[in-house]
Design a protein around this nucleic acid. Structure first.
Length: 481
DNA sequence: AAGAATTTCAACCGCCAGCTC
DNA sequence: TGAGCTGGCGGTTGAAATTCT
């Protein structure tokens, strides 16, 4: 839409001022309003006054009635939006404080693009505001070749992931059969709400439990998209509302699962939209696996957070089967055939992966200590390619679009492939956060997976610790947001 | 000073889930 | 049970404002 300042009685009017049926349709959810043409574009103060007056008298909600009763030529949606984003009395105006910025970053690390949920944890701020803030900052950082998340956030998410992993491992091994027969394995979304600034950010660990089964099914099986396995091009809001998706555990119980993982698209320097690697890689991708064994370091369904092989297994194992797969599961119980197929690059079946993961669970338990030891690398060391290497599993393979070790890690590394001070031919390790290093060679591989047109000029030198660690993340140092 | 480039942000759009009838 | 309505969400757009050259 293009706006022109048309000094009509109302003030600024959009060019298409809209009486177009399509606009009405969009606004009213498909049904045309009985009343005349609906106005679009910027709100005037007169309109604001009408809306405020109406809400004061009648309260929020029933937004379509606003038009009918107040004479506003605005659709209900528009009224709701205007109220929520600008007229609400409890809105906090002005720039985000540093504390809020920190909060947003951490919330985004936990939630991804769940602006509404983030807004609910930032009193007085709207989802739109947060979304705008995030997008502009991200763009800025992307242009500057800087990582999206502060290393401490990454570290925090790693730690939380570790905790989650431990808990999940516990659950996987200790779920009482009676419990599994019920629907009690749901984790209420409320758990993740209202973790305000004062309380820190501890709860939301996007794990596979959070991944809508449909996403897996629609994209995971037979998907030809590298890294797209858990990152379907479906509408994010759809995923968000898939908490009713049922996830039977291996005992046949059906559980709800939290949605969480989120889509995040970014635009590279060539304005080429690419799907950001999602939290899980597709270990079955032929190219991936064939070309690079190191990219197989995690078990199938291994999600984003570093050594989270366990996380995936633990969460996924009891939950992440779509109901439609239950029959399949029953009819085709796991067997050795399944196992071998799981390891086949050609096999992109979800179920097999789940079963595989369950098997991996035991062994990975034993490996966790090794993982931990492998992640502490003294500067100058080179991280080995061991599947147990936390960093590589977490940062290299899995691109979570929403989390420090997923999206940020992956996106950071895929978007900001370092060049300065290093040879592109030479595997380069870099300590991206205390005790954690990654192979940049592998990063390059991830990067080029999306067309290889990454902005070489738009890259930071990851070999410089200050590039990642020396920055004031909120733009109060050398680098501005 | 002027034009270009970039940033900001309000508003729109399409989709979806829940509710009601 | 299904259609229609409503509200909510996340992504996108584009005018205005700001910064850069």
């Amino acid at each position: 839409m293009s706006y022109t300042t048309n000094e009509s009685d109302d003030g600024i009017m959009p060019k298409d001022h809209t009486d177009s049926p399509s606009a009405e349709e969009a606004c009213s959810g498909g049904n045309l309003m009985e009343v005349g043409p609906l106005k679009k574009g910027p709100w005037t103060s007169a309109e604001d006054a009408i809306l405020v007056d109406y809400v004061n008298k009648h309260g929020e909600g029933n937004w379509n009635a606003v038009q009918k009763h107040s004479g506003l030529s605005r659709c209900g949606k528009s009224c709701r939006l205007r109220w929520a984003n600008h007229l609400r009395p409890d809105l906090k105006k002005g720039a985000f404080t540093q504390e809020e910025e920190q909060c947003i970053i951490e919330l985004h690390a936990r939630m991804g693009n769940k602006w509404a949920r983030m807004a609910s944890e930032l009193p007085g701020r709207t989802d739109n505001e947060i979304k705008n803030y995030w997008n502009t900052r991200i763009k800025r950082r992307q242009r500057a070749g800087l990582p999206i998340y502060p290393p401490e956030v990454c570290q925090q998410r790693l730690d939380e992931s570790q905790e989650s992993q431990n808990m999940s491992t516990f659950l996987a091994g200790h779920i009482h059969p009676d419990l599994s027969q019920t629907n009690n394995f749901e984790i209420p979304a409320v758990e993740f709400k209202n973790f305000g600034l004062k309380q820190g950010f501890t709860s939301y660990s996007p794990t596979l439990l959070d991944v809508p089964a449909r996403s897996m099914l629609t994209q995971g099986i037979g998907s030809s998209h590298n890294y797209y396995f858990m990152y379907p091009p479906m509408h994010p809001s759809k995923r968000l509302r898939e908490s009713d998706t049922v996830f039977p555990d291996l005992n046949g119980c059906v559980s709800n699962a939290l949605p969480a993982f989120n889509q995040y698209e970014y635009e590279d320097s060539a304005s080429e939209k690419v799907a950001q690697p999602f939290g899980l890689s597709s270990p079955y991708d032929p190219d991936l696996n064939a070309n690079d064994p190191t990219l197989l370091v995690g078990a199938p369904f291994t999600p984003i957070f570093g050594n989270s092989t366990l996380v995936a297994g633990a969460h996924l194992l009891p939950h992440c089967l779509h109901l439609s797969l239950v029959d399949t599961l029953i009819q085709s119980p796991p067997n050795e055939q399944t196992k071998s197929e799981c390891l086949s690059p050609r096999n992109s079946g979800l179920l097999e992966a789940v079963l595989y993961e369950s098997r991996m669970l035991k062994s990975s338990k034993n490996n966790s200590s090794l993982q931990a030891s492998n992640t502490s690398v003294v500067p100058g060391d080179v991280v080995d390619n061991s599947p147990l290497n936390l960093c590589e599993t977490g940062w290299e393979v899995y691109g979570d679009p929403i989390s420090p070790l997923g999206h940020s890690a992956a996106s950071v590394f895929s978007e900001y492939t370092p060049i300065s001070g290093s040879s592109s031919d030479e595997p380069m390790s870099v300590e991206t956060m205390p005790g954690r290093k990654v192979y940049l060679e592998a990063v390059d591989r991830v990067s080029t997976q999306y067309g290889g047109k990454k902005a070489i000029s738009n890259q930071m030198d990851f070999s410089r610790p200050d590039a990642l660690l020396g920055l004031d993340w909120f733009g109060h140092g050398t680098e501005q947001w």
